[in-house]
Amino acid sequence: MKLTVKIKRYNPEKDTAPHWQSYEVPAEPLDSALALLLHIKWHIDGTLTFRKSCAHGICGSDAMQINGENKLACSILVQDIVKGDGDTITFAPLPGSPVIKDLVIDQTRFFEKYRAVMPWLINNTPPPEKERIQSPEDFDLIEDATKCIMCGACTHSCPSTWADPDYLGPAAMLKAYRYTLDTRDEGSDERLGVVDSKEGLWKCYTIFNCVQACPKEIDITRWLSALKRKSVTARL
C-alpha cells in the first residue's frame, strides 16, 4: 500500500519555525514506523533526521510522537496505526523538550533529572563474599521498574512536566523507585530527600499518561504511588 507520511520538520540552520512536510511512501502492514522513516531518509530525502539504533525497542533511541501519541517508532507497526491504502501517518518530535533538528530533541534536561535522583545502589555495608541475598518476591518488587529503557516517552507525555519543566517527571522518579525499593539499597533517606520535594513526587497527579506512553508497558504510576507511600511512612 501507499501511505502519506507527514513529518514535522525543523532545520536550525534554515528554519525559524517548524513546518510540516509530506512524503508518499510504499509500505507493508508488517513494516515498523521506523521503516517508513528509513525509507524516506535512504531513498527520498537524506536530510530527514532522527535517532535510531537497535530497531527492536530496547535501546530507546527513537521515541517520538506518532499520530499524536508517544511511541517507539521501531516498536509500532503500520498495521497498528493505519486502516489502509492512502492513509496518513504523522511524525513529530517528543513534546516538552527543545527540538534540535526534525525529530531529534535535546535530552540534556531529561538526563539532568535522572542524575538528580542518585540513580545508583547506595550501600555502605561491606558486601559479603558472595552475592547479597534477595528473595524472588523482593526482586519482583523492582523488576517491572528495571525494564525502563530511558527513552523519555513517559516524561514527555506528562502534563505536569509540560506545565512545569522543572518537575522531575516519571522516568527519573521511576529510577528513584527502582533503587529505593531495592532491598539491597540503604540510600532511601538521601534519595527521598530529592523526590520528596516541591519539584518531585507531589506533582504527580496520577494522570496515567506515562503508563499509556511506556513502550515497555511499565506500570509507572503504580510504582510512583508506592514511592509516595514510602515517603509518607518515612516521615511518620
Partner: peptide, 17 residues
Amino acid sequence: MNYGKSARSTNAQNWFL
C-alpha cells in the same frame, strides 16, 4: 535546577492529608 538542595517541603504531610 538544584534538585534535593532545598529543605523538604510540607508536601508529604499535605499530600497525605
